[in-house]
Computed example of a mutant assay.
Amino acid sequence: MMTDTAAHTPDTATGPALRPAGVDYPEFLPGWVWLVGAGPGDPGLLTLYALQALQQADVIVYDALVDDRILALAPPATERLYAGKRGGRPSAKQADISETLVALARSGRRVLRLKGGDPFVFGRGAEECQFLHAHGIPFRVVSGITAGIGGLAAAGIPATVRETNAAITFITGHAANGEVPDSLNWNALAHASPVLVFYMGLKHLPVIVDRLVAAGRSADTPAAAVAEATTPRQRVVTATLGTLVEAIRTAGLHPPAIVVVGEVVSLRQIIAAGARQAGP
């Protein structure tokens, strides 16, 4: 389901992009598709290449989690095509999105495929690259800050701390069929990775918690959920692994959200407090 919707088109746009000296800006050529990560939400976390793409694209094919403030950085006349996917809601089919990218590029337009976070972190960017390559469409990939890094930082939770973890694992909370992935080695996750970050995991969090605890992860491990990270609507709930499901239910937290399990969560109190004291 691909829609051309004025309702998703912001009313304002900024002026020309800043172009600091010393940056080699690749030309956004007609007939090309750029797959660009929009980051977790805050427009300030965009890359310079992402900003260039927003201001030069002829058409933007964007996902559900792309913040309206980011879309507003494109000129008002730029066409915007909504191609969002949200669990349990009517969503665009991946095959339709890929076909649309090819058709737009073949029409000679500069096509920006704008994805929340990073295109290659649970973003199906690799699938779209393969499809474009198979159809002879040139493309470029521009990385974005993934929620498992930027979202944690915004919540005052470091991804790594020298004293607590030398590894971090990113995990999707649901597979293509909408269920918890059956290929996960829960015993390895429970024992081998000090910090676990689950994307799209709220729906199946009770199952995830049960499997981690059954595999040997302590129910007393610090844990947190960060919803709508880096946006004005950001909310953070901290608890333990064993109490996180109830804490989220009590707080009324809803997707999109990431869940982090590990001792790094215990540093939030210090880091978040320090950030508040420092001010904007």
Rank of each mutant, 00 (worst) to 15 (best):
A126M: 10
A126G: 15
E128H: 07
E128Y: 02
E128F: 01
F131T: 13
F131K: 11
L132T: 12
L132M: 12
H133P: 00
A134Q: 15
H135A: 08
H135V: 07
H135D: 09
I137G: 04
P138H: 09
R140T: 06
R140A: 14
S143W: 03
S143K: 05
G144M: 08
I145T: 01
G148I: 02
G150T: 04
G151S: 09
G151L: 08
L152I: 07
A154V: 00
A154F: 11
A154C: 09
A155T: 05
G156F: 02
I157Y: 04
P158C: 09
V161F: 10
R162H: 12
E163M: 11
E163T: 14
E163K: 14
T164Q: 14
A166M: 01
A167S: 14
A167L: 09
A167Q: 07
A167I: 00
I168W: 00
T169S: 13
F170G: 02
F170C: 03
I171F: 01
I171R: 06
I171H: 01
I171T: 00
T172A: 13
N177K: 03
N177S: 14
N177Q: 08
P181R: 10
L184M: 11
N185H: 15
N185I: 04
W186P: 07
N187V: 11
N187W: 05
L189M: 14
L189Y: 06
H191M: 12
A192Q: 12
S193Y: 15
S193H: 15
P194A: 12
V195C: 10
V195F: 03
L196H: 05
V197N: 13
V197F: 13
F198S: 11
F198A: 12
M200T: 09
G201M: 10
K203I: 05
K203L: 12
L205M: 14
V207N: 13
I208S: 11
V209N: 02
D210F: 01
L212F: 10
A214F: 01
A214Q: 11
A214N: 07
A214C: 00
A215Q: 08
R217L: 11
S218C: 02
D220P: 00
T221M: 14
T221L: 12
T221A: 13
A223R: 09
A223Q: 06
A223T: 03
A223W: 06
A223Y: 06
A224E: 06
A225C: 09
A225E: 01
A225N: 02
A225T: 08
V226N: 08
V226G: 09
A227P: 02
A229K: 05
T231Y: 12
R233E: 15
R233D: 15
V236E: 03
V236L: 06
V237D: 07
T238I: 04
T238N: 04
